[in-house]
Design a binder for these strands. Structure first.
Lengths: 242, 242, 242, 242
DNA sequence: TATGAATGAGCTTTCATTCAT
DNA sequence: CATGAATGAAAGCTCATTCAT
């Protein structure tokens, strides 16, 4: 009734984002007489909005993002965005939460607790690197949120429950490594994760300015390979006791 | 006539703009012996504007920054900003350049080439960490500029000349360290610098979101001390050959 | 097919709208013995809507009222309001008519024709005062309608039939009073009623501004008692011949 | 610099609104070479805005008023309204204050303290009646403000100082009348003024609905004359002791 | 009878920028 | 060197109303 500030009920958290149900265009082939993708599909509309909003916020930041453009990209009426998300800021939070859910979800599927410690660290570094490469929007979203001093995230409830198992996983790897006489003692999992993320984040997130000031294309294939290798050396060089 | 319409492209900031073609008031007859035109008010105003703009851009990003607020903070008329800097974007570039000049300038004063290699690396890490701590605006400015894909910086000429000696300095340290049998071989100075910066940058620049998701105050005194120590261990653990 | 498109002109409120031509669901085959279609929910819904609308229009005026809020307060779907009343403006008229019916109805129950003239006038004044006190929404509704130059009321048919007996009653009282040598001659019942109403209406309807500009709480108990007494003195002082 | 919420410095309070200086159109005849009505006249713009806003608020209420229309009527850019008045609500307050200043100013010029008591009361009644007749917008503005529970007026500082001398004047008349053995004792000036105002206010402010429900044109010349006479009889009939 | 989804038009407000002196 | 007045374009958001079931 009242313009619902409802929680967007779409995706089950942590579950991989349901592959977008094939669009009209996608199965234009032999269409059964079926009731067909109703334009009045709340979940679908919300999904489109989130998708479009993610792109827009990533490209322009919170301040620079335009609700008009989001509506256009999502193929919905602008009003609908407010109907479902209440305000631009609330939409931004929804986008953030979805982004975190996505990365933490994929990380969980790395099964770090089930592989040998050194390999686990390698995997984590490589995954982080590749995820940032494949999802540059994630970096920009975080930047925006930090510019706003985590104002939105602080209102989120689901964000905490998302991270404590993740930290637990890393702690487990470190402990196993230490017990096996491989890793140095007393490494804080949060500290280590921040380092791994930072090594990738700064390089990729600031590649434009860095490439400019150092007059060198940091995103060239060779440079990328070297960077991953450098990061791995750095972290393992620190972690592994010989 | 308003002060000669600028090209809207960047003009050397800080250098006084070419004196506007004499105004009506200025050319009424023969000019008197000149009462020593209020000395250097121009420079003062420009300084205030840059100061205020830095704060504003850092606090709100390029898109969120308000020319009105900059004028207010600087204590000058809004029109003056346009008089000196041409446009909001040009002002942003001026701010960026000043920020880079500042950090690179201080770095130069570390005299890294004159101290023993390991100590030089320690100093560089500590300096980077402390500079970012003391100048959080620097991080935000870089984020903004990267959001805009270094659009402004790419137009800058002075930026390149600022960085090549800096890279040279690090290369020199690494080489001396290697020759002394201390450091591993084949370390790329740019790669290493990016790692050092990244370790500090991500932690500090994203402290709001990180503190939120990990439910832990990353800026507490103890946490800060630990971080610097962790960073140093990490880098030297990698660099130093035993 | 949506429920037959209404003319958008007023329809008798409270009377159930002509049952919409049977819907798809309704005509699937032979209708079963009819499970006694939820008895009079329609009336209940309409009542709730009118109630809610009265409060909303009174609180915010016609322009400031929100159909959303009315639906929420009434606990019905917004669409239902349109189903029953056609438009916001038609709903407003329905509210107005109900309000007039209410006050005129209560007045009628005063039995002014059956009491002694002076007492009748006293009763009318006291009733008017108390009714306005108990029904502040009535005042606001009238204000709104006058702002709109009685645009809605002019379309109403039932409004005239409501008032002519009322005027008749007052005329009767005045005549009896005059015949009894109590009241002055030639008093216009409409004129007198407007005066009585005006004395109460202005005081109560404008109590907020009046209390503010005269720095005095006009709604305090004592003030209210004094006002009623003052009004009575005023009217009888004028009416009664000694 | 910052969008000034400055006090609108235009009219000297209580002085009659300076007759709008003839517009360009008005004297298109023989125009002297003069410096001409500069379009950049802050006071003039503010005056136009207030004028236009008064009309718009009176016609549509606060909620129904459109800033767009005000700008159009005032012949200024919409943005200028915000530049000078900050917000629609602040503009509304400015309009209200001006309206009160106007009526209280004219009342003061009645010199009620200098005429014989009965004549003073007659004058006050006639003035009130005629002012409301000539300024129907005043009634509507008050209605609007009461709908909003005097929210704006309560923020006003100048409103109190405007009314205390006015009450003083009426008190003086009543006292003189009583001392002269003309008026009854113990009449509260505020109470009396509210009655006088109410008698006129309700009749004129609600003339649309009243004319409709009583099927009679209350604004016809004859009706108006009768009303003023009725009001005077009513008040003096109460006040005067014989 | 009833409802959730959706929208076009328009609202107040903001902003970078320019005009005139 | 400096400024108050002014603006066009667009932003976020709201609203009465309609669609589809």
């Amino acid at each position: 009734m009242a313009p619902a500030r409802k929680t967007h009920k779409s995706q089950p958290p942590l579950a991989p984002p349901a592959p977008p149900t094939p669009t009209k265009r996608a199965r234009k082939g032999a269409r059964p007489p079926a009731p067909e993708p109703r334009p009045r599909d709340a979940d679908r509309s919300q999904g489109h909005i989130l998708e479009a909003a993610t792109a827009e916020f990533a490209a322009h930041g919170l301040g620079g993002a335009r609700v008009d453009r989001i509506a256009e990209r999502a193929g919905v009426n602008k009003r609908l965005i407010y109907y479902y998300f209440g305000s631009k800021e609330d939409l931004f939070l929804a986008v953030l939460e979805r982004a975190y859910e996505s990365i933490r979800g994929e990380e969980q599927r790395l099964n770090l607790t089930e592989v040998e410690p050194i390999e686990a660290i390698r995997r984590l570094i490589a995954f982080t690197w590749n995820y940032y490469l494949a999802h540059p929007e994630f970096l920009t979203l975080l930047n925006s949120e930090n510019l706003h001093r985590a104002r939105h995230l602080k209102r989120s409830t689901k964000i905490l429950t998302l991270h404590s198992p993740f930290v637990q996983t890393i702690a487990d790897v470190l402990q196993r490594g230490h017990k096996a006489g491989l890793f140095r003692a007393g490494v804080d999992p949060v500290q280590l994760y921040i380092s791994i993320a930072g090594l990738a984040y700064f390089y990729l997130g600031n590649s434009h300015t860095l490439s400019t000031i150092f007059a060198r294309d940091l995103l060239a294939t060779k440079a990328r390979v070297e960077r991953l290798s450098h990061m791995t050396d750095l972290v393992l060089g620190y972690l592994v006791r010989d």
